[in-house]
């Protein structure tokens, strides 16, 4: 109990002091998570739409594979990407390892299946009559796609928020590919892992509290959107 009390007080103290180290860590975390989520959404939402909207032979198989990828551990992704981008790897000359870009690459592999999968379920929930209504009113395929995505927007945003929550709370990829370099690739989660290793539980928990605050904010947004989606379908 003392530990928790100390940690909360420390966290508040550090936050109020606008501690530059803490600010750096939070900024790196948000920056990396933002770009991962952005690129993940740009790739995942259109792919999810195409899979949900089109009928093709291996559709079931593709969805099963996607669901399997959802269970991919972050360390496996970390190892895989590491083997490609380390100095001895195929893309070694790009000098990507231990940069924020490397974390983003790894996190993309983590969340693109999440976004695709959730987009598929969001699109599949949309009544087919939206498609036929748009078609009969003279829409072309692109315009029909736009209509369907517009109707599925809450589900799609929920997918993107879920992806953001996943990357900001993720530690394996950030540690393996980012290397926890202070000021460069040290994120909230890797910093927590470090503080734990150092035996500085107070700081680790303080960072955890900051992370929880973000998670809480994200979930509030998520719930608000979900509430609206439900209200819309009634």
């Amino acid at each position: 109990m003392d530990l928790l009390f100390d940690s909360v007080r420390s966290a508040i103290g550090l936050l109020l002091a606008f501690d530059s180290e803490l600010v750096d860590i939070v900024v790196v975390s948000l920056r990396v998570s933002f770009f991962s989520t952005l690129f993940g959404a740009l790739a995942g939402v259109p792919l999810g739409f195409l899979i949900a909207y089109n009928q093709f032979r291996w559709k079931r198989m593709v969805i099963t594979c996607l669901n399997t990828l959802l269970a991919l551990p972050t360390v496996v992704i970390g190892l895989l990407v590491y083997s490609f981008i380390s100095r001895r790897g195929v893309f070694g000359s790009l000098e990507l390892l231990y940069t924020q870009k490397a974390i983003v690459i790894g996190q993309l592999i983590l969340i693109i299946p999440v976004i695709i999968s959730l987009t598929i379920s969001a699109i599949s929930r949309i009544d087919n009559r939206y498609r036929t209504s748009a078609l009969t009113l003279g829409a072309n395929n692109l315009q029909v796609a736009w209509v369907i995505c517009r109707e599925a927007r809450f589900g799609i945003i929920a997918a993107i928020i879920a992806a953001f929550g996943r990357v900001i709370a993720e530690v394996g990829i950030s540690m393996m590919l980012g290397g926890n370099a202070k000021g460069f690739t040290r994120t909230m989660t890797t910093a927590m892992a470090l503080e734990y290793d150092k035996g500085e539980f107070v700081l680790a928990v303080a960072l955890g509290i900051v992370l929880m605050a973000f998670a809480f904010a994200i979930n509030i947004i998520f719930n608000l959107l979900q509430g609206r989606t439900n209200a819309d379908t009634v």
Partner: peptide
């Protein structure tokens, strides 16, 4: 940095070369 331990403020300090942001990388591993 100052953290609270057992209700008391405790300072934790680290030393590094001055003005070394560009070349000194602390990775905590």
């Amino acid at each position: 940095i100052t953290v609270v331990k057992s209700g008391k403020d405790v300072e934790i300090s680290t030393i590094r070369p001055a003005n070394s942001d560009a070349w000194y990388v602390s990775i905590g591993q």
